[in-house]
C-alpha cells in the first residue's frame, strides 16, 4: 500500500511535467516558426523604408510606416491612459480609503472591464466616430486603445499601492494634508515601480492589439505627421500582407512579425529590470 502511494505520485509527477514541458515547447515553436519563415525576408531595407510604388506586388520598400505608426500609437495611448489611470488609482486609495466596500466594488468592476474583447471597443469607437463625423485617425485609435488598457493599468497600480502601509496615509492625513495631496505627493513616489510596469504593460498591449485599431486607425503608406492623420500599425501590416497571394509579400509579413516580437520582448525585459530598480525607495 505504502509503496503504491509513492509509485502513483511518481507517475503523476512525470505526467504533470510532460504537460508543463509542452507549454515551453509551444513558446519555442512560435519563435522558431516565425523566425524560420521571416528571417530570409528580414533586412535593413524593410526596417528603414516606407512602402514604395508596387510594394504590395513584391517591389522594393519596407514597413517603416507600420513600425513608426505602431510606436506612436502605443506611446500616445499609454500616455493618455496614464492621465486617466493615475488619478483613478489614487482616488481608490485616498478618498475611498475609509470605504473598503466601495474599494472592492470598484476593483471587481475594473476586473470585469478588463475582459471586454478589444473588438467590442473597436465597434464602439467606430460608432462614436461615425456619430461625430471623425475620419479614422491616429488620435481616434490612441483614445480607443487608451480606454482599452486603462482598467489593467488602474488595477496594476492599485495592486502595487496595496502593499503600502496604511500608516503612511493615516499619518499624512493627521498632519493636515489633503487626501489628493497625499495621493500625488506621497503615494506617487511609492507607486513608481507599479506605474512603470503598468506603463510598459500598456505599451506592449497597445503595440500588439489588432482588433480595436482595425476600425479606428485606418491604414497608410506614409509615416503620419500629425495625430489627425491615419496611421499604419504593425499587426495590421502583418495581417494585410499575409492575405496577399504573392509569396514575397507574404514573407514580409513574417519579417514584420519578427520585428513586432522583438519589440515586445524588449519591452517585457525592460519592465522587469526597471521594476526592480525603482522598488528601492519603498516604505514597507
Amino acid at each position: 500500500m505504502n509503496s503504491r502511494k509513492y509509485l502513483v505520485e511518481k507517475i503523476v509527477k512525470i505526467i504533470l511535467l510532460i504537460f508543463t514541458i509542452f507549454i515551453v515547447f509551444v513558446l519555442l515553436s512560435i519563435f522558431y516558426g516565425i523566425f524560420k519563415k521571416g528571417l530570409s525576408a528580414l533586412n535593413w531595407e524593410i526596417i528603414s523604408q516606407v512602402p514604395k510604388g508596387g510594394y504590395y506586388f513584391g517591389k522594393e520598400g519596407g514597413i517603416l510606416n507600420a513600425i513608426v505608426g505602431s510606436l506612436y500609437l502605443a506611446i500616445g495611448a499609454s500616455l493618455i491612459a496614464l492621465v486617466i489611470s493615475i488619478p483613478a488609482a489614487f482616488f481608490i486609495h485616498t478618498y475611498l480609503f475609509s470605504y473598503p466596500k466601495w474599494q472592492k466594488r470598484v476593483r471587481l468592476w475594473l476586473d470585469v472591464l478588463w475582459g471586454i474583447p478589444p473588438i467590442v471597443y473597436g465597434a464602439f469607437a467606430f460608432n462614436f466616430m461615425l456619430f461625430m463625423g471623425w475620419p479614422s485617425s491616429l488620435l481616434a485609435a490612441m483614445i480607443t486603445v487608451a480606454l482599452l488598457i486603462s482598467p489593467v493599468m488602474i488595477r496594476s497600480m492599485d495592486e502595487s499601492l496595496q502593499h503600502n502601509s496604511k500608516g503612511l496615509f493615516e499619518s499624512a492625513l493627521s498632519l493636515g494634508f489633503f487626501k489628493g495631496e497625499i495621493g500625488f505627493k506621497f503615494l506617487f513616489k511609492q507607486s513608481l515601480p507599479g506605474i512603470t510596469t503598468a506603463f510598459l504593460l500598456a505599451l506592449g498591449k497597445g503595440l500588439g492589439d489588432t482588433a480595436s485599431v482595425l476600425f479606428t486607425a485606418g491604414f497608410t503608406d506614409y509615416i503620419p505627421e500629425s495625430i489627425t492623420e491615419p496611421a499604419a500599425t504593425l499587426p495590421l501590416a502583418i495581417f494585410f500582407q499575409l492575405s496577399s497571394p504573392i509569396p514575397e509579400v507574404k514573407e514580409r509579413a513574417y519579417a514584420a512579425a519578427i520585428v513586432l516580437t522583438i519589440i515586445i520582448l524588449v519591452i517585457s525585459i525592460l519592465s522587469r529590470v526597471l521594476s526592480k530598480r525603482f522598488s528601492k525607495n519603498r516604505i514597507k
Binding site: 515551453v24 515553436s29 516565425i34 500588439g208 520582448l265
Partner: peptide, 22 residues
C-alpha cells in the same frame, strides 16, 4: 516556467494567428 508564461502572455494575438497558420 513563470518567465515563459509571462513571455507567452505578452505575445500579441496576431503572432499566435501566424503561428496557427504555420
Amino acid at each position: 516556467l513563470r518567465t515563459v508564461i509571462d513571455i507567452l502572455a505578452g505575445i500579441p494575438s496576431v503572432i499566435f494567428g501566424l503561428w496557427g497558420i504555420i
